[in-house]
Design a protein around this nucleic acid. Sequence first.
DNA 1: TTAGGTGCAAACGTTTTGCAACTTG
DNA 2: CAAGTTGCAAAACGTTTGCACCTAA
Lengths: 152, 152
Amino acid sequence: MAHLTSAEAADLLERFRHYLREHRLPVTQQRDLIAHAIFTAPDHLTAAAVHQRLSGQGKRIGIATVYRTLKLLKECGLAFERHFGDGVSRYEVAWADEHHDHLICVECEKIIEFEDEGIEELQHKVAARKGFKLVRHKLELYGVCKDCQERS
Amino acid sequence: MAHLTSAEAADLLERFRHYLREHRLPVTQQRDLIAHAIFTAPDHLTAAAVHQRLSGQGKRIGIATVYRTLKLLKECGLAFERHFGDGVSRYEVAWADEHHDHLICVECEKIIEFEDEGIEELQHKVAARKGFKLVRHKLELYGVCKDCQERS
DNA sequence: TTAGGTGCAAACGTTTTGCAACTTG
DNA sequence: CAAGTTGCAAAACGTTTGCACCTAA
């Protein structure tokens, strides 16, 4: 689950502000709002979804600013950009201690997160065997979820 | 290695033609050329790369036709479409008996293919645990290759 | 002959960029 | 005040589509 408590979200927001100050970049209302949206989202948001969500709250923010801020969040390591093959980028909070991969239903598009120690260990072994120093990985399992199996 | 012998490439081309005839679709020069380009490529090609490669050979083929044919190759299972997170689709021959994942160097962008039985087995276990019937997966390991490690 | 493919150019949806006006520090 | 951000609209990007013409069977 990528859903953070509001205390955790607040902590991440503070870390983002700290990163900005450290780099002598202004902490603006827009940056706060966008970062907050990502930190409190229960799922993976597209830039358009972030924009809509803020518009719905009466905030007038340009889509360009959303992209610019998402890039900052990526750079400082507080958010990840994901691609699930439909040509749209999705963003999610990078929850420090948690590493998870994705299990995606090919019928209803539901996305479930999981972690597996064993797989991670084998990944490191494979990389080592090829002389690579592993820095990150992406694993997506596509299948039919229980609900969709029953439905058919 | 995704590099096929010319006999293997010829065999795949014949399979493609067979698929087309079976579906009462014409076997055109363009389709032959594009399929051949994919089957003989040593690496993952973008649509633009296929187009360039053919243009370089003096063939005047529209980029739209390249996309249309790549879609056909995907549909008949002879090519896979891959996404490595830079917003561009890459295509590679689907070598029937081989299943491989990718190891990508984050510095020189070199792409190495690998297979690992152990990882695949664990993937099936994870999916089963969550009630999913696994149909396919995507695993990409990003790291620094031996050459780039030495270079720095 | 005719179904369907082709190239072109225009349309598309997502992401980026140039710029004048505006905030932040 | 100066540096850097913002919103807008326009551009850029990869990809798809509409259409008149052409090719395979």
